[in-house]
C-alpha cells in the first residue's frame, strides 16, 4: 500500500475513534482503558513477522526480539481481555424483586 492510502485510513480511523469514544458511557471508562490496552497489542503482528522470519538473512537477533515482543504482547492481550471481561461481568442492573 502506498503512503497516502495508509495515511487516509489512519486519518479516517482517528475520526471514527473520536466519535466512538465519546459515545462510551463514563461508567465504563476503566474497561475502555483495559480493552484499548488489549487491542493495541495487535502490535504482536509485527513481532510475529520478525519471529517467523527465523534466523535466515541475519535475522537471528530480530527473531529473538520478535519472540520477546510476542511474549510481552501476549501478556497484554490475554490479561487485557480477561480483566475487561471480569470487570464487565460485575456491572449488573437492579434486581427486580
Amino acid at each position: 500500500m502506498d503512503f497516502i492510502s495508509i495515511l487516509s485510513i489512519f486519518v479516517m480511523a482517528c475520526f471514527v475513534g473520536y466519535y466512538v469514544v465519546w459515545s462510551v458511557t463514563p461508567a465504563l471508562h476503566t474497561p475502555l482503558m483495559s480493552v484499548t490496552n488489549a487491542i493495541s497489542s495487535v502490535i504482536i503482528v509485527g513481532a510475529l513477522i520478525a519471529a517467523a522470519a527465523g534466523s535466515a538473512a541475519g535475522g537471528e537477533a530480530a527473531k529473538w526480539l520478535g519472540l520477546v515482543g510476542i511474549a510481552l504482547a501476549s501478556v497484554n492481550i490475554f490479561g487485557g481481555f480477561a480483566v475487561t471481561e471480569r470487570m464487565l461481568a460485575m456491572y449488573k442492573k437492579k434486581e427486580r424483586k
Binding site: F10, N37, I39
Partner: peptide, 12 residues
C-alpha cells in the same frame, strides 16, 4: 489492523 487500532487507542 494496526493503523485502525492505533488511531482508536490514540484518540481514546
Amino acid at each position: 489492523a494496526m493503523i485502525i487500532t492505533g488511531a482508536l487507542v490514540g484518540s481514546s
